[in-house]
Design a protein around this nucleic acid. Structure first.
Length: 592
RNA sequence: GACCCCGUAGCUCAGCCGGAUAGAGCACCAGAUUCCUAAUCUGGGGGCCGCGCGUUCGAAUCGCGCCGGGGUCACCA
């Protein structure tokens, strides 16, 4: 389902333009260290190489002189002189100029860009793929919605962000496990079982009213019918103890089938579903408790009264096993078991993370911001558990996805499974399509809240930026089809005929590999969406040059050689758009 | 009271590890289509980057303190 790339293949890939020039600068700086210009042990960690904002500044810019000047006891411009003297001598670098407070601006020979164009063509789908992850195993847990009903829009953002992040990390050289934690052990699944029992009675011909507190959703009707068909009226009058576990198991299985189907409409497929109930039955939670107790991280104590605005109504002190999360910046120690002896969510969750850490080099969780308050305790517990043998704690990040405020016609729309009042993910995907939903969720950084107004999204779906990007791809593909009909195919024979506008397009495409690495490092897939928008804008802009100046079109009928070279460029741009959309899980369409 | 996120153009939002004259879309104004797909493009107006102090060659970006908005503060999940 998720194609993986072997390490060998990645390592044999040629260096992309940015990577190659970054290496070049580093070697120049290393030389300066050897010559004593820079002090031994100088770190180049803050040295950047980026495209200048203003194209008149050249092709590439580095801040090396400014960053390193202080350590060298030189002023930035003097150090820049020393660096540029070496850089300017490099083949492929036309000029190295010092500007402003000490920027070094590089101008590259056209051949450098042409070479990058060839690299895009030869790497194909692998252009932008990075070895950065070094094959490390990263477990990404996302969605993990309770198995009590279909996916609704509240789940959507975390699902898309988690899925795109997984693909991004894979593309950046990590070995990703996409995991879903099934909370099939809490009170909510008993509520589910009782709700299904009502539907079971209904299927047997009884007239029912769903009591307050149960799930009234129609989606449970078929589950009740299936149970009635299989068991007849055997459990109609039986006490709850006779059927609760059976009904719960069947209901959870049915809900998970439904959730998998819903996720599939968004193109999301998890590698692994882990059951909380199975985890508890395995004794792993007990083992975790024991270990924490021997390290004095869990003790039997009295829970403090709840802080803040809510004054205690019927609150009374109880002795419970508590995790010392106050040692890690939490404002209260947290129970891992309830007074009835059952595990709290937190108690099971820390063992669950410990289990995941056994097979992964790093853990990433995607959570809704409403759980932000529990981040400190879980991170503390996992750090303690994974460093049990004296090893460094397993890297574990919780990425919080801020709430999506749901609106309908400008009015806030509250959703609740208990009231049966919610908008399903499947309905929205049905209305506007997978690509619009995914791209909408990815054109915003995850830390910012967002509004999702159904009416507006449906009405404006035609204006969604996803179509802007897809249109750029479709234009390229249609051009290639048309040229093929004319008997012209892409060729790299005359790439030297490409001019400044075409090289600028390559320059944008050449940023793809560094955008991938930066986005993967920051765990921010939305950056790829914005990059693709910029790339598409450049393509559309170039395309429209041909309106006034037919000689700038991709297809120049009188000049087959030039056309073949431009088609080679067009193919490469399309390739990068396709690659980026692939990471985001969005379709690259052939026509619109 | 504590913790987390946000505050950038009229609106919705980008802005990477601090970098050069702070960007895009929408909306508004003026233009471009006998031509490879106009779902596109070109130009224009519009900014105390919430406020203050600090760090330094340099702050929208980092730190501290305020102000404003949202979220959370269960033996829930």
């Amino acid at each position: 389902m998720h194609p993986r790339k072997t390490q060998e293949n990645i390592m044999t890939q040629p260096k992309t333009l940015y990577a190659a020039h970054a290496a070049l600068i580093e070697s120049v700086l290393t030389e300066l260290v050897a010559e004593g210009v820079l002090p031994a042990g100088t770190s180049f960690a803050n040295v950047t190489l980026e495209p200048p904002r203003d194209a008149s500044h050249g092709d590439l810019a580095t801040n090396a002189a400014m960053v390193l000047a202080k350590g060298a006891g030189m002023n930035p411009r003097a150090l820049a002189e020393a660096i540029t003297a070496k850089l300017a001598a490099q083949p492929g670098i036309v000029s190295a100029d010092i500007a402003g407070p000490g920027f070094i601006n590089l101008r590259l020979a056209p051949e450098a860009w042409i070479d990058e164009l060839r690299a895009i063509a030869s790497l194909g789908d692998d252009y932008g793929r990075s070895a950065m992850g070094g094959g490390r195993v990263v477990n990404v847990e996302y969605v993990s919605a309770n198995p009590t009903g279909p996916m609704h829009m509240g789940h959507c953002r975390g699902a898309v962000v988690g899925d795109a992040l997984s693909s991004l990390l894979e593309f950046a050289g990590h070995n990703v496990t996409r995991e879903y934690y099934v909370n099939d052990a809490g009170a909510q699944v008993d509520v589910l079982a009782r709700s299904v029992h009502m539907r079971y009675l209904e299927a047997l011909g009884q007239s029912i009213t769903i009591p307050e507190g149960l799930y009234p959703g129609e989606y449970l009707v078929p589950v009740g019918e299936a149970l009635a068909a299989e068991f007849g009226d055997r459990y109609a009058a039986a006490p709850e103890g006779d059927w609760l576990i059976l009904f719960r198991t069947r209901a959870v299985a049915a809900m998970m089938d439904m959730i998998r189907e819903d996720l599939a409409t968004l193109g999301i497929v998890h590698d692994l579903f882990s059951s909380e109930a199975e985890l508890q039955a395995s004794g792993k939670v007990d083992a975790a408790e024991q270990w924490l107790r021997t390290h004095d991280l869990v003790y039997d104590g009295v829970l403090e009264a709840p802080k803040g605005k809510a004054p205690s109504e019927d609150w009374e002190p109880v002795q419970l096993p508590l995790f010392r999360s106050t040692k890690f910046g939490d404002d209260q120690d947290r129970p891992i078991k309830k007074s009835n002896g059952a595990w709290t969510y937190f108690g099971a969750d820390l063992a669950y993370h410990f289990q995941k850490a056994q097979t992964a080099d790093a853990l990433v969780d995607i959570w809704g911001a409403d759980h932000a308050g529990t981040v400190k305790r879980i991170k503390a517990a996992v750090a303690a558990l994974t460093s049990a043998d004296g090893a460094a704690p397993k890297p574990f990040e919780v990425k919080l996805v801020q709430m999506v405020q749901l609106l309908k016609g400008g009015q806030p729309f509250k959703m609740s499974k208990r009231s049966g009042n919610f908008v399903t993910l499947a309905d929205v995907v049905d209305m506007v399509g997978k690509d619009v939903v995914r791209f909408t969720m990815l054109t915003r950084k995850p830390d910012a809240q967002m509004d999702f107004d159904f009416d507006k999204v449906v009405e404006a779906s035609k204006d969604n930026p996803v179509f802007y990007v897809q249109y750029a791809h479709a234009r390229i593909r249609s051009t290639l089809r048309k040229a093929a009909d004319m008997g012209i195919t892409p060729s790299d024979a005359d790439l030297d005929r490409l001019g400044a506008e075409e090289l600028a397009l390559i320059a944008r495409a050449a940023q793809f590999p560094r955008e991938i690495e930066a986005a993967a490092r920051a765990r921010e897939p939305h950056r790829i969406a914005f990059y693709l928008y910029d790339l598409a804008a450049d393509l559309h802009s170039y395309w429209n040059l041909g309106n006034d100046r037919p000689e700038k079109r991709f297809i120049v009928e009188q000049d087959a050689q030039l056309t073949a070279a431009r088609l080679f460029l067009a193919t490469a741009i399309g390739q990068v758009i396709r690659g980026g959309l692939g990471v985001l899980g969005v379709e690259a369409v052939e026509s619109m």
